[in-house]
Simulated assay, not measured.
Amino acid sequence: MSTIAKKLVVCGGNGFLGSRICKHAVSRGWTVTSISRSGEPHWDAITASKTPPSWSQSVVWERGDILRPATYAALLKGADYVVHSMGILMEADYKGLVSGKESPVAGIQKVFAAQRDRGINPLDRKQGQDIVPESTNDQLSYEVMNRDSAITLAKHAAEEKATAFCYISAAGGAPVLPARYIKTKREAENTITTAFPGMRGVFPRPPVMYDSSRPITVAMAAMVGGGSIFNTLTGGYLNSFMGAAGAKPLKVDTVAEAVIEALSDESIVGPVEIPQLEELASKAWRKTML
Rank of each mutant, 00 (worst) to 15 (best):
K7P: 02
T33K: 14
K251R: 13
S38D: 05
G243C: 11
S19Q: 06
A48T: 11
A256I: 05
K77M: 02
E160G: 00
G78T: 03
A244F: 03
V218P: 00
E187I: 09
A195N: 02
F165W: 10
L277C: 09
D253W: 04
G12Y: 01
S99A: 13
G128F: 06
T288M: 08
A244D: 09
I229A: 13
S103C: 01
R118M: 13
T51Q: 14
V272T: 07
G270V: 10
T3Y: 09
A154Q: 10
A244G: 02
A247N: 07
E159L: 12
A154N: 05
V202C: 11
A48V: 06
H84T: 02
T217I: 07
W30M: 11
M242D: 00
L123D: 09
A171N: 11
H42S: 12
D44H: 12
G225K: 08
L97T: 08
T31Y: 01
K101H: 12
S99C: 01
K251A: 15
A73W: 00
G39L: 08
T33Q: 11
K77N: 11
S49Q: 05
V98M: 11
A74L: 00
Q276M: 14
E91T: 15
K183L: 12
S135R: 13
F112T: 07
N231P: 03
E261K: 13
S282I: 01
P104Y: 07
I35P: 06
D117L: 02
T234S: 13
A79Y: 01
S103Q: 03
G243R: 02
L277M: 13
E261F: 02
I192A: 04
I108T: 13
E273I: 11
L97W: 09
M289S: 12
N239A: 12
D138N: 13
V111K: 05
I216R: 10
K6V: 05
